[in-house]
Design a protein around this nucleic acid. Structure first.
Lengths: 94, 94
DNA sequence: CATATAGATAGACGCTTGTCAATATGTAAA
DNA sequence: TTTACATATTGACAAGCGTCTATCTATATG
């Protein structure tokens, strides 16, 4: 993973609303309208955030008729672990 | 670790110059003037980046006369691991 | 004290980002 | 086909960020 990709992922994580979205998705797939109920933002703003989260590969989407279903990407954990290892080493015992 | 703190850490990681600084520090403590040689930025810009990295707790500093020595914080790995766990779970096998 | 050097701070500038209202697109149902 | 609904896109705006030049502060040395 190159620096540009790392920056993209870290930027995606650097917003409280997007962190809340990820927390909501931890329990499993959710559709956009459900996310919208729990966040105090407008629908276009949510759409914007979901685009950033999907573009950096942390979130997957599934289109089902009119609805968009979002979920944490399978390799999201691995991606962030790779960042940790790259800059801070393998173990927490330095 | 609350969301505001997480955002602060992720913002600090969301810049290529700062990622390069962390990579340089992986081999051990370095003084600001040495960092400056390897990065194509001015001294005030480096000072700005170091402030962000120190303020979020990823980097430690030690003042020695005129020189500032920077190093990766002891718990930097643990901090980023905590972020990973908080939003993406304990294991990579979901 | 005067000078030199390492680093921090202030202020300015252009670019990016988060947000919203308005509108467009796509899908389903009447 | 018309209507309703879910989501995406556009355009605007204020706030934030990365960078620079200029200047300040602190420390060491002649």
């Amino acid at each position: 993973m190159n620096d540009r990709e790392t920056v993209k992922i870290c930027k995606a994580l650097a917003d409280e609303n997007r962190l809340n979205i990820l927390r909501l998705l931890r329990n499993g797939e959710l559709c956009a309208c459900h996310l919208l109920e729990d966040l105090h933002i407008t629908q276009p703003t949510l759409s914007h955030h979901m685009k950033l989260l999907c573009d950096c590969g942390l979130v997957d989407y599934r289109k089902d008729g009119k609805w968009m279903h979002y979920s944490i990407a399978k390799d999201a954990h691995a991606k962030l672990s790779a960042v940790t290892t790259e800059y801070f080493g393998e173990e927490e015992s330095r």
